[in-house]
Design a protein around this nucleic acid. Structure first.
Lengths: 340, 340
DNA sequence: CTGAAAGCGCTTACAG
DNA sequence: CTGAAAGCGCTTACAG
């Protein structure tokens, strides 16, 4: 592999001049610039990443700390990862994917070895054990997911409280007065998935304000169980005319359950889910839903991270960006059926 | 951040001695080793990755070249990625994830900058445009997927031909004499998914040998369409008693289709699929299937790659490892129903 | 506008 | 068993 010394010799200039000609960090005569570029072309020169990192203390790599959790819907995870790596590439960064069990150790290691210029954390829990380490690291970090304490980091998430209110508002406007909300299972909460609470509590408060009855459940996250759960909810609340789903497995199981009960949406029941478009596409789900936008969240997190790495953001202006919910209408919402 | 110089001073030895004490590459007195370790501990020393890479010309990073294709089932993709990054971590390597559109450019760039010690290519097509570049690179590469030309690379894939034969054999043994095989859509073939042919042709040949009628179709890869397709196949071949699926969407749609036709498996029809366990779990599919083992394939590819990077494998012994198909029995296979 | 030199933080022959 | 020194391939003050 040719080095910058080879380029310099061939162009008949010094190494520093060759370097500056390539970086454009000081003015260079047109003649020299041309000769350097020709030499680069001719030799197929590419700077050595390790040497550059050593000299500049920047690697142009971001560390992506993923956590793969049980009964998590994989496509959403992949969408986060894609959004992040694509946006990083677009901004000139590569992505180091870390999926080790021990996220704290991994974070510490990458930070100490100076292997990356910054971190994106996925699947951030309410009390995320990686955060203290991240705050002590010399590289900045951006989170996808809202923790209890957001000091020192940039945060991106769906606004789950607004999502809960939006679901209730939309059905209330249409005349619905009794709703069922199916959340993710309790163990998701226990491992720190506070967004489940955020959505459910906000929905409940709004329902109370509006005089709407809202029955809240934690559904299972796997297929045979959640189907039975759904049957149970319908049996328990025969007068409910609306179903709110913050549980992917429930959404996936619903077509079969409705079929089995001879129900259809929106004729017998209005349905609003909360999942990614990608999820909807994979399962061909016909339900209107609030897009959880994993791809977009990933992109924004990286964008902010890189602007911070490159010094465009100052220490002070930490971001907590909760993106407003939008219902992607697939026709599963209408006025409630007339009372039989 | 402390450097090895800081460690050396604190331990009262030279930098080279400190380095050797840590690497163990030459014998060190017990006394010195202890002092160096104490200094490391006390300072929280971690070697700088860029400096080490520059000195050793090894980065301990592998490049993972993913390609995200349309209508591909995402969870399988994620399983490959997990398998690779987990095995790499276990062997002391980090994983650089690259999902750029232009795989050739990405490969070239990572190779030239010496950012990685080797490559794993996913979603390898029959005539994969990345292969010539990979063969010219100075880093070794392992593929997941079997291309037409395997010179200079290590290859890992499911043995799709054996899979095709196994499906036919299994149902033939049980007494089936008329089968339907649903493959992935033709555009998957066109972009280089030769495994579709490999399975279908092998199944057809075996069926001919055994005197079994095998009706072959390319099914759609999305939900409403593939459902109609399946109905069409059943209508066209009312005497068929076995269904072979090399098409994830078909497997996902089948429960509904069978329900609609009042059919059940294995009573009215025996079914054998070909998809990952993870896919089966996500969709709660009750069909016996040949596991496409993405996680395992990813692990093996990385293992071989790293052993080659570290010189344990010689140039000559390139591997083409086709893992034998195994039917994961979920109870959807039985003798055909008695003729009505 | 350009060059000679120092330095980034490691590893590893070379010498003892 | 240990040290002084060179070198990996860059970038960037410093000097002109």
């Amino acid at each position: 592999m040719p080095t910058i010394g080879d380029v310099a010799s061939l162009a008949g200039v010094s190494r520093s001049t060759a370097s500056y000609a390539l970086s454009g960090k000081r003015s260079i005569s047109e003649d020299v610039r041309r000769k350097v570029n020709e030499a680069v072309e001719q030799l197929g020169y590419t700077p050595n990443a390790g040497a550059r990192a050593l000299a500049t203390s920047h690697t142009k790599i971001i560390g992506l700390l993923a956590r793969f959790l049980e009964d998590e819907f994989a496509p959403a995870m992949l969408q986060y990862i894609r959004g992040i790596s694509e946006m990083a590439a677009q901004l000139g960064y590569d992505t180091l994917l870390v999926s080790e069990e021990d996220g704290v150790r991994a974070l510490q290691r990458l930070s100490n070895t100076r292997m990356v210029d910054g971190f994106v954390l996925l699947n951030v829990a309410e009390h995320d054990d990686r955060l203290p380490t991240l705050r002590n690291a010399s590289q900045p970090g951006a989170l996808v997911g809202l923790p209890d304490n957001t000091t020192g980091v940039d945060v991106f998430d769906l606004d789950f409280e607004a999502a809960g209110r939006l679901m209730v508002d939309r059905l209330h406007e249409l005349g619905h007065r009794e709703l069922i909300l199916v959340s993710q299972p309790e163990h998701v909460l226990k491992r720190g998935g506070a967004y489940v609470w955020r959505l459910a509590n906000a929905a409940y408060e709004r329902a109370e304000q509006l005089g709407v009855a809202l029955h809240r459940y934690f559904g299972a996250s796997s297929q045979p169980e959640i189907g039975n759960d759904l049957h149970g909810y319908f049996d328990a609340h025969p007068a409910a005319t609306g179903l709110l789903l913050n549980n992917e497995a429930a959404a996936a199981a619903l077509p079969t359950v409705l079929h089995e009960r001879g129900m259809s949406s929106p004729q017998s029941i209005s349905v609003i889910g909360r999942y990614s478009d990608d999820f909807a596409k994979t399962f061909s789900l016909p339900y209107s839903a609030i897009d959880s936008a994993p791809h977009e969240l990933g992109r924004r997190a990286v964008q902010q991270l890189i602007s911070r790495i490159e010094g465009a953001s100052t220490e002070a202006d930490r971001t907590v960006e909760l993106i407003p919910p939008v219902i992607n209408d697939r026709g599963s919402i209408s006025a409630p059926p007339p009372i039989a």
